[in-house]
Amino acid sequence: MDWSYIFAVMVTSAFGLQAIVFGLAAIGINVQFGYTGLLNFGQAAFMAVGGYAVAVTVVELNMSFWWGVVFGLIGAVILALLLGVPTLRLRADYLAIVTIAAAEIIRLILRSVTFKDFFGGSDGKQAFADGFFAMNFLPPDADLRIGPAVVNESQLFTYIVGWSLVALACLVVWLLVRSPWGRVVKGIREDEDAVRSLGKNVFVYKMQALVLGGLFGALAGFITAVGAQNVNPDSFKTDATFFAYAILILGGAARVFGPVLGTVIFWALFQGTDVFLRQAIDAGVPIVSLMDGTQAAVLRVMLVGLGLMLLMIYRPQGILGDRRELALDAR
């Protein structure tokens, strides 16, 4: 058992690509669900819109990376409007069902043979990130070594950009939630009729929250696309949304840094468990070695599900949250 390797993996995972991507996605869900009470179960769709916008703009439209970013952000706004208009006037569970359905619609279209020429089918799209890495200011040999793990300069650049976006997103959320705007959405989360009776256009606030959260989702999509230098329909499955929910609830919903803390801990544990289990299997540890590698990977997701249940039951406020304030157990 190589503990230093396991530790190195945990550290690099805690601050690595996935942590950034899911941190941003969870910040978006925090705006929507944590503060406003909107159940967006289609965050994966917003991520897909961001990622594919960059890929398709560069590869198929031969335009620059930045146009891809612009299209991705516009696409996320349009998607939020399309989902919000029919559902934001209805009960909370309708938004949940429609957003999860929309995410699946988008994924099915992206991976379809019919649109393969444009979206690349189940193989996805590659070779679009040059415009992004052209901005890399780090010297070519700027590798970061954490024990046995090496982070090369491209990865390092992606992480720097990614964590900057996380910081920016946190700043935006922090500024908003302590303002009168934040007061209104928190009111909506608890009782939208009360807020309505005070002359606030509840629909507009919900829509703003949905759009803003969707934009953070699109940012997550950009980072996963350039970081992996690949977009693939299957990285935007419904499970991605549910992982982001688990991260948010772990860190603490309705807390500015809840999603950030959640993502760091989640990915350290998630990847740490993976390496640990694989090493245990190789080392022939009793019981554990009855599993194979696939089963170990499946076991991790099983534990995510179990963790989400237990958190929701015993500590719905997560690590940072305040149970009194949290409206999760309302209704």
Binding site: E190, L198, K200
Partner: peptide
């Protein structure tokens, strides 16, 4: 419909109309 998970003063502030800070 007092918003029980907000403070009393925040409940009150929420009532005021034409607040510029309520725009994003």
């Amino acid at each position: 419909k007092a918003l029980s998970k907000m403070t009393v003063i925040d409940n009150m502030r929420l009532g005021a109309t034409h607040q510029v800070g309520e725009r994003m």
